[in-house]
Amino acid sequence: MPLRTHTTTQDRPASLRSSRTWDTGVTSIAEARDAVAALLAQVRPAPGTRSTQDAQLVVSELVTNAAKHAPGPCALRLEVPAGGLVMRITVTDTSTDPPRRRPPDPGRVGGHGLHLVTMLCSDLEVTTLPRGKRVAATVPLTGERAG
């Protein structure tokens, strides 16, 4: 299975980072959620808190979108800067198409992920790259909803 995992804590004293790369597309969304819980367990003693669940939902939605709409390799980077007040989630994929919010439709199955992401994040940034895009979301870890 083409998966590489990297965890570092040396760049900045209290900054925690974790990354995953998939060479042939995402094989397990649960693996991405587990990476969030593992990193936040180093910051907070109770990984079942709402902020952990919010971060897991955001990573789940962003990685699912990459798997669904961008064939080929993708990468996930997680960072909790010094102080542990936010988690920065970055997903890089091979599609240059930016994520688009669909009009709200309670009767529709699917297509609600970006609404959830923007509701839970204090910042969402999309950067077009020469061979894809990078979607970076900042999730507050204070237990309060961003939106």
Rank of each mutant, 00 (worst) to 15 (best):
R101H: 03
P130Y: 05
T94M: 00
D105I: 10
H115D: 11
S28P: 05
S60H: 11
M87E: 02
M87H: 02
D123A: 14
G84V: 07
C74D: 02
T92Q: 15
P98K: 11
V59K: 03
A46L: 04
R102Q: 10
R145V: 09
G25P: 09
R134D: 07
T128W: 01
G83D: 15
E79R: 08
S122K: 05
L39Y: 00
E61K: 01
A41H: 11
H112F: 08
G107P: 04
T49D: 10
T92W: 00
R4I: 11
V80Q: 00
E144P: 01
L40C: 03
H115G: 00
R77K: 11
G132F: 00
A67E: 03
A14P: 06
S122L: 09
P2W: 12
P130T: 02
T27C: 08
T142P: 03
R50T: 12
S95L: 05
P13Q: 14
T96E: 09
P71T: 07
T127F: 03
A38T: 14
T8M: 14
L124G: 03
M119W: 10
P47S: 09
L16C: 07
R33S: 15
R33F: 00
Q56M: 14
A32I: 02
T9L: 08
A146W: 02
E144H: 13
R88N: 14
P2Y: 13
P103E: 15
A75K: 05
R101I: 07
T8D: 14
G143S: 09
A137I: 06
A14T: 12
P81E: 13
R102M: 09
H69S: 13
P2F: 12
G147Y: 14
N65I: 08
D23G: 09
G113I: 01
S122V: 05
T8W: 12
V43S: 07
V126A: 05
R100C: 13
P104L: 13
Q56S: 09
G25N: 02
G72R: 04
T94R: 15
L40M: 11
E61T: 11
I29C: 01
T127W: 04
M119N: 10
P99M: 13
V80M: 03
S15T: 15
A75L: 07
L141Q: 06
R44D: 13
G107T: 08
Q42N: 11
R102T: 05
R101Y: 01
V59L: 04
P98A: 15
R131N: 09
A82S: 14
A38G: 15
H115Y: 05
E125M: 06
Q42G: 05
T52R: 00
D93H: 04
S18W: 02
G48S: 13
P81N: 10
V36W: 02
I29Q: 04
W22S: 01
P104Y: 08
W22A: 00
A30S: 09
A32K: 01
A35H: 02
K133G: 04
S60Y: 10
R77C: 05
T5R: 10
V58L: 12
C74N: 07
P99Y: 10
V91L: 04
R77P: 03
L57V: 13
Q56W: 04
A35N: 01
V36F: 02
V86M: 03
V58M: 03
C121S: 00
L116Q: 03
V109H: 14
R100K: 14
G132E: 01
